[in-house]
Write a protein that binds this DNA or RNA. Structure first.
Lengths: 310, 310
DNA sequence: CTGTTAGCGCATTCAG
DNA sequence: CTGAATGCGCTAACAG
């Protein structure tokens, strides 16, 4: 590995001069600049990150706090990380992974972001270790999604709309419920608690059970909204012919109608904001993103215009 | 931030002594060791990674090469990364993300691993940049899975077994095909090319189309194997009542029978092997892992004992 | 404009 | 056993 000394020697200049041209930190005459550049090219020299960073007191690294595996059901961590990696890389930064409960995140990175959705019940604990509003926060409002979903059905003339969602004790789920109520109120439809089922977990068979509970009751409904991918998949599996509309939380694959969470935009925005903050720029700490509704080929799909069909 | 100097000063010893006790690199008297430890505790001192690493010429970092988003359909990157992070963290290392086509991966990390499945058609290109056998490789054999799947059906008395899989030009898919042929041969069943459908892509609707193509033909089959999550999901969606067995590639959720790829073990093994290699230990460069078959609640589920039902 | 030099925080010879 | 000195690779004053 060639060092800056080697370059300086070969170019017949001092190390400082090499540093100057490489960092544009001082005016350098065209002649010597060319000599330096030639030497750099010849040696294939690349500045040693460790040395440079030690001197600059920076790591050129962004730390990512990762929650535990079983919580990653709603959001696509893969896509999120890929986009975050791209955003960081194009700015000369790298992403460094660390478990959310990690102790040693002192000088590992210049800044930290955390992956998490409001549906993640453990997020409060994670945020206790790394408060969200000391770092830039990008949020996606489930209330908006729920409201949008209900409106889609009411605009199509439906009146009795069922809701299958996780318990309201989970923050993100609470907002889903909120949007549902709000849309009903605005449409002048009375709220009927019997139409709401709240399974404890977001698993395939929880969806099946919830659907069957609703179907077995005397309550007839003409529209149905399901919050949670696994739940929605379960419902579709049991019998999608009867279900006017399934709205999954984020996954729009498999023909299920659902909201597409702007995962890439989210990751990108988060990284950009952190970088701006590191640059010393003032930033808005909270940024809200909106999910978009995509109507799938399964279940309800009539009387809808202006939507993308999967 | 306290430095080693501060510790030395407070303990009334030299910086070298502090280094000795912190790294156990030299014998130190019990008395002075205690003084040092006390000072460390009092100041909450933690060695500065950058400085230490510069001196030691190491980064305590493992680089991870990430393929592009659209290729991540078969394997759970999230789970994989989480487990890799845990394995690395518990050894004092961190994971550093980098796009697979990244140029600058010189001194960023002590070693590199890459996420990828043999089904990934772009893997050869990725590996061209970071040849797999210069880094430790952990592989999962699809041929084993295919063979196991076919045997499960033949043992239940089936004779005409259909196969829906990706084109053989994709390495991982080729091995799937291989295992299928091998199992048939061993069972003394003649191979019938009409029972094999090879859609070009692993998407939901490709599965639907492939299934319909097979169903429309004159070929009747009593068992069916599908390679690929999205394909399998599509097949189930169309009509799972007729399908004796769906074997997905890796995903066993949603009631579909399938192979569980040992994702966590994989990630863990890969990281451990790299760390051993960095330690200078001789390691076997290729490690084979086997997937395990899980029978789902959908489709074929009779005459099977000793399996875990989802 | 360019060279000399002093650290960034740490580990490690080499004398004592 | 301990301490002073050296340097890992680089940047940034400070002189010239």
């Amino acid at each position: 590995m060639a060092t800056i000394k080697d370059v300086a020697q070969l170019a017949g200049v001092s190390v400082a001069t090499v540093s100057y041209v490489l960092n544009d930190s001082m005016p350098v005459s065209e002649a010597t600049r060319n000599k330096v550049l030639a030497a750099v090219a010849k040696l294939g020299y690349q500045p040693h990150r460790q040395g440079r960073n030690l001197q600059r007191q920076r790591t050129l690294t962004i730390g990512v706090l990762l929650p535990q595996a079983n919580l990653l059901c709603e959001l696509d961590l893969a896509t999120w990380l890929l986009e975050a990696t791209n955003a960081a890389t194009s700015a000369g930064y790298s992403l460094l992974l660390q478990p959310a409960d990690s102790q040693a995140r002192g000088d590992l990175a210049d800044g930290w972001i955390s992956f998490g959705t409001a549906l993640d019940p453990q997020l409060p604990q994670i945020w206790a270790l790394a408060p969200p509003f000391e770092q830039p926060a990008v949020l996606c409002d489930a209330a908006f999604a729920a409201q949008r979903a209900v409106e889609t059905l009411t605009h199509a003339g439906m009146q009795r709309i069922g809701l299958i969602t996780l318990p309201r004790s989970i923050p993100g789920s609470a907002r889903w419920y909120l949007g549902y109520r709000r849309a009903l109120r605005r449409a002048g439809i009375a709220f009927d608690p019997a139409l709401v089922v709240e399974p404890a977990n977001n698993r395939f068979h929880d969806g099946v059970a919830a659907y069957e509970a609703l179907a077995a009751s005397e309550n007839d409904y003409d529209g149905l909204i399901v919050c949670g991918n696994q739940l929605a998949t379960g419902v579709v599996m049991v019998d999608h012919a009867k279900v006017p509309l399934i709205v999954s939380h984020s996954n729009t694959q498999r023909g299920i109608s659902g909201f597409r969470w702007p995962t890439e935009l989210w990751a990108h925005t988060l990284v950009r904001k952190l970088l701006q903050q590191l640059d010393g720029s003032a930033i808005a700490h909270r940024t809200w993103l909106n999910p978009s509704l995509v109507i799938g080929s399964l279940g309800f799909k009539e009387d809808l215009d202006g939507f993308n069909y999967v």
